[in-house]
């Protein structure tokens, strides 16, 4: 039972009706995520990564194939799923504390209890003292932390993260990555972490999958043999990291080149 995948996609396909006809965003995607696994997804821009997450979260139904969460087909939003969106999605008219307390409140917790739990998470993501601030009074990095606390306060079993840190500067990003690993350790949650940044993917994940240019499907999967707990800044300097980086980058480079040739986007950060 323990190693049954929590999330599995079986030949999942998603088509959109676009301006120029039917557009296939995800094609024949097969993918398993084990309980507690940290999976990073990299791929050229516009290839269908966000679409994949929306299939898993139940926000979009698959056009063909199957999406299973805990063995059951996804209809509506599965219980235990948390999703940090690519775009800002915190409520601008609620203070930090009330934003974080929103999930528990909606799930039926009493106001006092919801706020108590929210207060703990606000502190854990390093925003202690900002409880009464409104989102427009926060920096971009702080807003991302609010979103993180908002998601984690529900104690999700599956955490979907769509380029959560891509808008942050390098220092804040490093800090947030460490924080994420710290907060994730011990939760036992399965994570699908979409990113453009291959370094980020490798330093965080247990496994990295490379997606093909649109329509997205899994091109290759790489296990990351780095030990935990990790310090993202230090792990990047190890020889093992550089080896695996080269290997993944070789695979990704071709897709990025194809994506550029198709003119779909600017490709992927290549920082090393």
């Amino acid at each position: 039972m323990t190693d049954d995948p929590v999330i599995s996609l079986r030949s999942a396909t998603k088509r959109f009706r676009g301006a120029t006809g039917i557009h296939t965003a995800v094609h024949d995607l097969t993918l398993d995520v084990r309980p507690g696994e940290f999976l990073a997804v990299v791929g050229p821009t516009g290839c269908g990564k966000s679409t994949t997450l929306s299939l898993v979260s139940g926000l979009e139904p698959a056009s063909a194939g199957e999406v299973l969460v805990r063995g059951a087909p996804v209809r509506g939003i599965p219980a235990g799923v948390g999703y940090m969106f690519q775009q800002d999605a915190i409520l601008p008219w609620r203070s930090v504390l009330d934003n974080v307390a929103a999930g528990p409140r909606w799930r039926g917790a009493a106001k006092a209890e919801a706020r108590e739990r929210a207060r703990g998470w606000v502190r854990r993501v390093g925003l202690g003292g900002f409880e009464g601030y409104y989102p427009h009074q926060l920096s971009g990095g702080m807003r991302k932390r609010v979103a993180l606390a908002q998601t984690l306060v529900n104690e999700p079993e599956m955490l979907l993260m769509d380029e959560p840190f891509s808008a942050l500067d390098v220092q804040t990003r490093g800090l947030m990555q460490d924080e994420l690993l710290r907060l994730w350790a011990g939760t036992g949650a399965a994570v699908i972490f979409v990113t453009h940044d291959l370094e980020e993917a490798i330093s965080l994940a247990d496994r990295v999958i490379v997606m093909t240019t649109a329509p997205a499907t899994v091109k290759a999967s790489f296990d990351i043999p780095l030990s935990r707990p990790r310090n993202v800044e230090e792990v990047r300097l190890t020889a093992a990291f550089l080896d695996i980086y080269r290997e993944v980058w070789d695979s990704l480079r071709e897709e990025v080149a194809r994506s550029r040739a198709q003119g779909t986007g600017q490709g992927v950060d290549h920082a090393a």
Partner: peptide
């Protein structure tokens, strides 16, 4: 995005409407 986020966080249809 706000609506989707609320739904993921557990808001019902009425809660999406009111909040």
């Amino acid at each position: 995005n706000l609506v989707n986020n609320a739904r993921i966080l557990g808001a019902s249809r009425t809660q999406v409407l009111t909040s």
